[in-house]
């Protein structure tokens, strides 16, 4: 048990003509060490949901428990929660502000009350783990390329050593190279450090490739919450809300309709390859 979201509702501009029910009756349990993908189209409530998890937005009703403690409790330290649940916003490079890359990454740890040395050590480690070469450490973050800036911004959150890492569309606007770098980095954090990772994404292909569990949001509600292959079985329903299954899943369905006995549980290119080889070469032999 790490985070429990219990009957959470959130309403924007309550009581006005502009009232929007951004979240409705959300119940979730996020266990330690999970790698979760949250998908949903723009306005489905996924960004609002993740901002609840580190207390940046307070639910209109319902409760959130972090390691069994109610985060809306009077005695609960929200800043401590934010240290432990790291949130990387969309386009995180827009938050860089210090004169050097190193100082910028130190910002989080310094706010945690660490000494300069400790913060520096954290920054050093975090920058190295995101693959920023040392000769860049004392340059201005504004001179970096787009992909590098983003990795520095992610390092700024990693340096706080959170237990849970939430990323809101971390690959938006990046080219394929930059995208793979970020996704590989996140996977490494999950695998090597056992970090709980929550990845908000638009790309079904990315989500299918990396995560163990998918939460599908639609109109402020959780529509599906399951392992990828189960979620993508509902590809027809996903289409009605503007989403889709990965291309390879469609391929398998189409092949099956044409009479080829392939499994339709496939969600990644690697799985598709293995399945097709099994069926096609198996048949021939």
């Amino acid at each position: 048990m790490s985070i429990i979201v219990d009957k959470v509702n959130y309403v924007y501009s309550e009581g006005t003509a502009y009232e929007i029910k951004a979240l409705q009756d959300i119940n979730l349990e996020i266990k330690d060490g999970e790698f979760i993908g949250i998908i949903g189209h723009t306005g489905s409530g996924k960004s609002t949901l993740i901002q609840h998890l580190n207390g940046l937005i307070k639910a209109t009703s319902g409760a959130i428990y972090f390691h069994g403690q109610d985060i809306y409790d009077k005695d609960f330290d929200l800043r401590e929660l934010r240290n432990r649940v790291g949130l990387v916003f969309q386009y995180p490079e827009h938050q860089l502000f210090e004169t050097t890359i190193f100082d910028d990454v130190c910002f989080g740890p310094m706010n945690q009350g660490l000494t300069k040395e400790e913060a520096g050590l954290r920054a050093f480690e975090a920058l190295r783990s995101v693959g920023i070469p040392e000769e860049l450490f004392y340059q201005s973050p504004f001179d970096l390329s787009g992909g590098q800036k983003r990795r520095v911004a992610i390092a700024g959150v990693l340096a706080m050593k959170p237990e849970v890492l939430i990323l809101d569309e971390p690959t938006a606007g990046l080219d394929p190279g930059g995208r793979d770098e970020i996704l590989d980095l996140i996977t490494r954090m999950h695998r090597e450090r056992g970090m709980t990772v929550i990845l908000v994404s638009h790309s079904m292909e990315d989500v299918a490739k990396y995560v163990d569990r998918i939460i599908v949001m639609n109109q402020g509600r959780v529509m599906f919450d399951d392992v990828p292959k189960e979620v993508f079985k509902h590809y027809k329903e996903l289409e009605t809300i503007g989403l889709a299954a990965p291309q390879v899943t469609y391929l398998m369905h189409e092949l099956r309709e044409k009479g080829l006995p392939v499994s339709t549980d496939v969600t990644t290119v690697a799985e598709a390859r293995a399945e097709l080889l099994r069926v096609l070469l198996g048949e021939r032999r």
Binding site: P176, V269, R273, L276, L277, L281
Partner: peptide, 28 residues
């Protein structure tokens, strides 16, 4: 540093595994 569409990638992998799939598959 570029990708190919998922179908092209899969087709390429299958061809490398010895299946007789033409070059340059673009669509499903």
């Amino acid at each position: 540093h570029l990708d190919v569409p998922q179908m092209t990638l899969l087709a390429d992998l299958l061809r490398q595994s010895g299946l007789n799939i033409p070059l340059g598959v673009l669509t499903r």
